[in-house]
Nucleic acid binder design. Structure first.
Lengths: 343, 343
DNA sequence: AAAAGAAGTTGACGCGCGTAAAGTTTCTAA
DNA sequence: TTAGAAACTTTACGCGCGTCAACTTCTTTT
């Protein structure tokens, strides 16, 4: 390209010898013009370095080409990884992803949704904060914008949901732990940040009861999204005061488990499935770092790829179908047991 | 708000009894109108739920209210944490941050820059991929858009840079390790992803030589951004084949060190600064997870807050000053030694 | 080769807001 | 109180592109 800056489509029409409406069609969908025309346009494009003004483009469109991705806490590598998957799939599908993190703040989540609405996105993939979310606001949003909720289900919310089957995964984990050693305690934060934790606790209880074991739940203090630190502090206290009734601890998620591993290490307790260890520890989610803890963490894998694929598949259906209300069903994926050295 | 949807500013002008140009001023800067007028507008705003069309707004502005934040790999919690800091500070300063990750892909980095340019951002905070970046492209971009580079310096690039002083931090780390035990080996990836690593190696060598020690560099194979895995695999091999000439290993960054810790654990080697341990391991960056490794990782802290603050401070200067070319100096922060149990 | 259909051209209007000019009202200060 | 400044209103045009209607040119079909 010559670097000649072309101011607008009109000017580019002059230079390329193509009429402006045809150019408009081309930029909306390159396949919609004749091959010979497309060639001429692209030849001119290579020469003159013109890009249509996106603001003017979007002003008159009912929806843009953008897909919003909203996660509750991006500094959590779990969400970073999911976001990465979603982004790449959006791009592959010809959309422009826009990424937002609520940073654990419900007010920010509301703001993000508001600003997103005014950006007329084609659709939105939303992992809500959960318990702290402003449900009315989210409901209103989903009514206006094609939205797929993922990771964290909000009860009675009409839109589609993609996530994992906590009941299945916890049962699997409990069964595995019971078969390979003593029945586990369940470790969770006193204040649950999202409904997944509640479902996991319930699933834990029923899985334990089904095996004829007494469920035992250990709750630790701490609020916010610094799960590792909460797991560490709570774990130190719990180990020191002997709050665990089993040598096997099942944590409500991997980040808590990572903190607990650290607490065990600092308490001079060994962790692992061997004979001479003090504790076994398991988590849930297959957090990107769980492979590298010492010992590596036994957990249940959420299949990031499948969840991403399915979320987008449903979203595209929503976008392309007029009657949005019809698709409101949940789609739950089974977790896969990832046995590692910790349990 | 009644939920009455107002289509445009003209209609809102009718309903509120304020002229459209005044409303336009208000939305551009609420402080620019008289108190009584602002009150009337905000009263109407509460009643009618109107938001100006951002596309129409931005079409006629030379620059928008947006600040682009581009990082090389968002699934790396280090960048997630920096991005979080930057985002929150942008919001506090009245800007709208837009977050992008190149996902380790130079082509995507170029695309992001291109699409960013057409969005007329007020400014951009860019942590380039480094070695793999398309330098010409970035240079062209920085010439058009006020840009502050951070984390990874690109040599001879004209724009401002904020980062950390690798020479200082490595010297500090080497001194600490030598005082408290044997002089360290330096562990790095054979293929450096960014210039920081090179600078750290050089700083390591000169710090060692200054103390009269023989520098020893261990390079491990592996490409890409999966540093932990590379550290793990490379570490396993290195331990097995006895490639280390010291019991103290200084890694070029924390993620590599986390992998190496895992390799040591799997090789039944103990790590720590105690008498009876096999190895001491240290990293660099104070990665969010380094506090929770077993043992906790000794490292050098990059002060996320200061780097974010300074980056934005310089960016705002760039935005508000006409002659951009003048501000081209580096701003380097000292690291802070974080001694933990691993070394 | 003629007719039908697809694709392109010309011309024109509208989107919602920025912004300038000219006139009017309201505030500020002496 | 009153002049002057500041803020507001009215009017009008422009931004760059979407899109429609009517017409022309090119491609395809039998």
């Amino acid at each position: 390209m010559d670097g000649n800056k072309v101011r607008n489509m009109e000017e580019f029409a002059m230079l390329s010898g193509i009429s402006r409406p045809t150019l408009s069609k081309y930029f909306h969908d390159p396949e919609s013009v004749r091959n010979s025309t497309r060639d001429r346009i692209e030849k001119a494009l290579a020469e003159y370095d013109y890009r249509p003004n996106i603001f003017a483009m979007n002003q008159n469109r009912r929806t843009t080409n953008n897909i919003g991705i909203v996660v509750p806490f991006l500094a959590d590598p779990f969400f970073a990884e999911i976001a990465r998957n979603l982004e790449q799939r959006c791009i592959a599908a010809g959309y422009s992803p826009i990424l937002f993190s609520a940073h654990g703040d419900p007010a920010l989540e509301v703001e993000i949704l508001d600003s997103l609405r005014s950006q007329k996105p084609a659709g939105v993939l939303l992992a809500p904060l959960g318990r702290a979310s402003d449900r009315r606001h989210i409901e209103k949003f989903t009514a206006e914008v094609p939205t797929v909720l993922f990771d964290s289900r909000i009860p009675d919310m009409g839109s589609a949901f993609v996530g994992m089957d906590n009941t299945q995964s916890m049962r699997m984990l409990v069964n595995y732990l019971c078969e390979s050693g003593s029945p586990p305690n369940f470790l969770e934060m006193r204040v649950a940040v999202n409904p997944n934790v509640n479902r996991r606790r319930i699933a834990y209880v029923s899985a334990m009861e089904a095996l004829g074991h007494m469920p035992e739940i250990v709750r630790i203090d701490g609020e916010g999204w610094e799960f590792e630190d909460i797991g560490l502090q709570g774990g130190l206290t719990a180990f020191a005061t002997g709050r665990f009734t089993s040598n096997t601890i099942l944590c409500s998620n991997d980040r808590l488990a990572i903190g607990l591993l650290s607490a065990a290490y600092r308490s001079n307790l060994t962790v692992g499935r061997g004979e001479n260890t003090d504790f076994r520890i398991a988590g849930h989610d297959d957090h990107p770092f769980s492979r590298f803890t010492c010992p590596a963490l036994t957990t249940v894998s959420q299949d990031y790829g499948s969840i991403s694929d399915k979320s987008l598949e449903i979203l595209f259906e929503l976008i392309n179908s007029e009657k949005r209300s019809e698709i409101g069903s949940d789609c739950l994926f089974d977790g896969i047991l990832i046995p590692r050295a910790s349990a």
